[in-house]
Design a protein around this nucleic acid. Structure first.
Lengths: 341, 341
DNA sequence: GGATCACGCCAAAGCGCTTTGGACATCGCC
DNA sequence: GGCGATGTCCAAAGCGCTTTGGCGTGATCC
């Protein structure tokens, strides 16, 4: 059933039927009701491609996943983030298009998306320091919103971010309050903006309490379980090992715990650790006290809100850029305790 | 730059330019070369929406994620699977559309996708026993391929699956060889087809060695870390606890390990465990011997191949249905050892 | 009573592509 | 020289929608 057939059936013009369904005022309420009833009865849905062609808007938002190499890690927060964004999209009548592209072809991919009229807007994920994509997308003229921020870019853009600096400063502070002095940082790759900010927060908090950051206690890498384990194991073997760890993700934290336990130590007693927790659904726990003390912020909610943000960019490009800074909660679990003496 | 402008520039008709670019024979090689050069020089990309409207094919493949409730788990294999599928799609000139829909509206979502001409085909994920989606999609007339199988459906359909039955039978057999007699199964939800098959394999292997499946040693639930921990903890507290565990996912396995260690036991010595491992990229390890003994099969590769399978369905709907049964490797790690006496 | 206006409807153009059904040369062949 | 075959190209008609501009009709106002 298409517009033509539906309007023939109703003995109305395509114009009137279209305008009736799209809420224009110059249709009498009587005919509008009649049209809506018929549309419902025949389960009429306008063809998206025709609609897009006629309006110039595709009602699709793109998410680009740059692929480093064949074996590179897929971001574990991806699934929950997508779910959040998808919820907003379906509420707002948008579709989500995901494009896996080789990192070398990322720029070409954006250009192609624009030229082919594939998407109305984009979500930019995992911004790096001085991320070139912001300038690129402004140049291309594709609305977007960034999940995170890109230190070093001076042009305005819309973003939503967790206050990573403050979260890690608070976590560090909390560990210092517990008497810890040698606090390690198991960070994500610091070319990533969020990891950079976390280190800032960590170092600031140390300095504010007259502690000197020690390069031997700082690591950065892709946040896998294996990395958490390796880093912890190595640092516990130092002559003057840390008594506490600040960890960038729960996945890493799993590795940290493994290393701590393998060393015959108990987490929360002999060694403390705080992780950032994106509330990934498949790692959720139940029970009164969480296993891990964590700075917690829902990545699914971030997806929901960021999706709304791109849609706003598309609808009102002239509006000023939006910024949302989510504060992470510091949730006390069983992985922290007073520093051993 | 659109077709009209490009053809004006070349002083050719739109027809000729279009046919030149689409490889039709009735264009001289000289003009074809000229057209291609101009298209390249101006980075011409046909508008996807117009192309789709004209051809009736959108070159988009849909993935539907049914959302149980606001807090339901997002499948952890999702990200890697999507990445694999996305790789194939970009090679074949397809786009991937992801739709998060409330489970109650799943059927309506499929219908709508078809009517709106949004997608040319679909991937069906996480089939349940007697999954109604297969009949539904056949009725709607949307090509699809299933990731897994749906026991109880007698109509033919294209699928790709891991040989879950054999994988779990082999794993069980291996544990029996090591002297284990009380082997627990920490399964996924058995309404899911894969979990059902895993239990079959497990029970068959037990019976083949004259062991009786014990309901007290079998659990099923959503495969979270917390579930693995809870199930293990409870079973270890039984009067006659299991000495080995068969676990449905690495995420669960993390919980199993936690429970084992909390009980003061050592995995691979006091208690053995084998998990199914989808080779999720963010849980990957390095090192010579893996931590976990596992039945291993790459979900990313599954994504790649299944994407190819839907594309084939779209291109040649009259071809017989394809089936691929991937065998999981049994990889020996450090989580298994001889049964303690 | 005629001008004005709002209301409700519609014909037709257009979005950017593909495809059908020729048209026009050129060529080889009898 | 005429005829069919072949090789190149093109005008125009769609694909299914939205939107512009206009057309009647009846009510309103001086």
């Amino acid at each position: 059933m298409n517009l033509k057939q539906l309007s023939a059936l109703l003995e109305l013009s395509q114009t009137t039927v279209s305008r009736a369904l799209n809420g224009y005022a110059d249709v009498s309420e009587a005919t509008r009701a009649r049209v809506q009833a018929a549309a419902k009865a025949h389960d009429y849905r306008p063809n998206t491609r025709a609609q897009a062609l006629a309006t110039g808007r595709s009602r699709v938002i793109g998410h680009v996943i740059p692929k480093i190499s064949t074996h590179a890690m897929v971001n574990p927060i991806f699934a929950d983030f997508i779910t959040g964004a998808g919820e907003t999209y379906s509420q707002c009548g948008y579709e989500m298009l995901i494009s896996v592209v080789d990192v070398a072809e990322e720029e070409a991919a954006y250009r192609s998306m624009k030229r082919r009229g594939l998407v109305d807007g984009l979500i930019v994920s995992a911004p790096r320091m001085n991320d070139p994509r912001i300038e690129l997308l402004d140049g291309i003229g594709l609305p977007y919103a960034v999940h995170g921020r890109a230190t070093g870019t001076d042009r305005p853009y819309s973003w939503l971010d967790v206050n990573n600096r403050r979260a890690f400063a608070r976590a560090t502070d909390f560990l210092i309050d517990l008497g810890h002095r040698r606090i390690a940082l198991i960070n994500g790759l610091e070319a990533m903006d969020f990891a950079h900010r976390r280190r800032q927060g960590y170092e600031e908090a140390l300095r504010a309490r007259a502690l000197l950051p020690d390069a031997a206690l700082m690591r950065q890498d892709e946040m896998t379980e294996g990395y958490g384990w390796r880093a912890t194991r190595e640092m516990l073997a130092l002559p003057d090992p840390p008594t506490a760890f600040l960890v960038s993700s729960v996945i890493c934290m799993l590795g940290v715990r493994r290393a701590v336990e393998e060393a015959g130590l108990t987490l929360g007693r002999d060694v403390s650790a705080i992780t950032h927790d994106d509330q990934l659904s498949y790692l959720r726990e139940d029970g009164p006290v969480p296993t891990f003390t964590a700075t917690r912020s829902s990545v699914r909610e971030a997806g929901q809100r960021l999706a709304r943000m791109v849609i706003d960019r598309i609808d009102t490009p002239e509006a000023p850029h939006a910024h949302e800074l989510l504060e992470a909660e510091l949730i006390i679990g069983r992985s922290t305790g007073p520093a051993p003496r």
